[in-house]
Computed example of a mutant assay.
Amino acid sequence: MNKKRFILSLLFIVFVIASLLIGVSSELTLKSLLSGNKEAYNVLFRSRMPRTLAIILSASSLSIAGLIMQSLSRNKFISPQTAGTNDAAAFGVLISFIFLGSIPSYYRLIFSFVFALISSLLFIFILNKIKFKNIIYVPLIGLMYGGLLSAVTRLIAYETNTLQLLSSLNLGTFSHINVLNGSMLLILVPVLLIAIIFAEGFNVASLGEEFATNLGVNYKKVLFLGLIVTSLIAASTYLVVGPLPFLGLIIPNIVSMYYGDNLKKNIIDIALLGSIFVLANDIISRLVIFPFELSVGFTMGITGAIIFILLIFKQVKNND
């Protein structure tokens, strides 16, 4: 293990412990755990552990999804947020509710995933038709595309009196996570394994279709697999947690600044840094107005925007 990964691992452990111990309940303390207090272990296993596990799974998954999308699009400012994937996932959930009513969450996930995948395929198709692929203009097109999807979704929600459903999905919070509703995120475990297994293929695909084909990689197959992975991650995290701003955008960029662009080598570090970033923001959200808490999406919107602006200035400076 190199020094940087060792430091990330230590920080990850520290923030995981802090996430488990910080909360409204005074029953859960390190002392009560060591003394075998039953109420403390009840709070730990029913509330704190599911929440922390949900943070780790969603944060690492979205960070890796951003890395895959940036590799496949060959643009550092592409992510599920800037490519309209999250907006398409919300559209899918709305359509499932309108036509099927209150169905189990796993059925909603299917709708959300299908719409996110179709949207991702459409965005890649649009991207391939653009001749002038400036590193800044491409994500701007993605944001406009996502904005159009969001506007259509809100219009349909307004006409069908389902705006409350969208409001509940757009919170971006882990406060409601428990053993039952957090279990759907376990689908991310095999998805993450697939991403790690095919990391080399995604890495080669980032070099372009012609180069990848010359190296014996089926570019279209790898591209489609990458879009399936990112769409499933975006759909499941959006459905359970809501939007987590800037996560898939800034984390891959920060890691690539220090480790280079090798996807296979960076994927573990990106998962660790993404988890640390969300854990830190979640802890801040819990402490700012304690015993109440802010939405982690709100906190990440502020910290993520600051980091994103710095990354843009750095990119523009490097181009000059």
Rank of each mutant, 00 (worst) to 15 (best):
L33P: 04
I17M: 15
F97K: 03
Y106W: 12
V93K: 06
L294S: 03
N253R: 08
M144R: 02
S150I: 02
T303V: 11
A18T: 15
L180N: 15
I197M: 08
I103G: 12
K264W: 00
V240G: 00
I118W: 04
L272W: 00
F174P: 12
A90E: 03
V43M: 10
I136L: 15
L100D: 00
D282L: 05
L127T: 09
L10K: 01
Y106E: 15
F45S: 12
L8F: 13
F202E: 03
V222E: 10
V222W: 06
S285F: 07
F308R: 02
F298C: 10
K129E: 06
S295V: 08
L44G: 14
D87G: 00
G84Q: 03
M69K: 06
L30T: 11
S105V: 08
Y41A: 05
K3F: 13
N42E: 04
I187A: 15
P291E: 00
N214G: 15
F198W: 11
T29A: 13
P190H: 12
Q81V: 09
T29H: 10
L279N: 09
I196A: 14
T237I: 07
G146P: 07
L244S: 04
L311G: 13
L272K: 09
T82G: 05
I228L: 12
P291Q: 01
L263T: 04
L94V: 03
R5E: 09
E209K: 15
F198S: 03
I267A: 12
V255Q: 01
Q70V: 01
F6G: 10
S25P: 13
I270P: 11
R286T: 11
L109K: 07
K221M: 06
G182T: 07
P190M: 10
K314T: 03
I177H: 05
L121Q: 13
K264I: 02
F115T: 03
G147Q: 11
K264Y: 03
L239R: 02
K4L: 14
S295G: 05
A157H: 10
N203F: 04
Y259C: 13
G142Y: 07
H176E: 06
G304W: 02
I110V: 14
M69I: 11
Y219A: 08
L180P: 05
L143F: 10
N37I: 09
R48S: 08
L127V: 06
N161K: 12
R5N: 11
A199P: 02
S19H: 11
I312K: 04
F246I: 11
L163V: 04
I135G: 03
G172V: 01
L94Y: 01
S63P: 05
L149D: 01
N318Q: 11
G147Y: 08
I98F: 12
G304S: 08
Q70R: 00
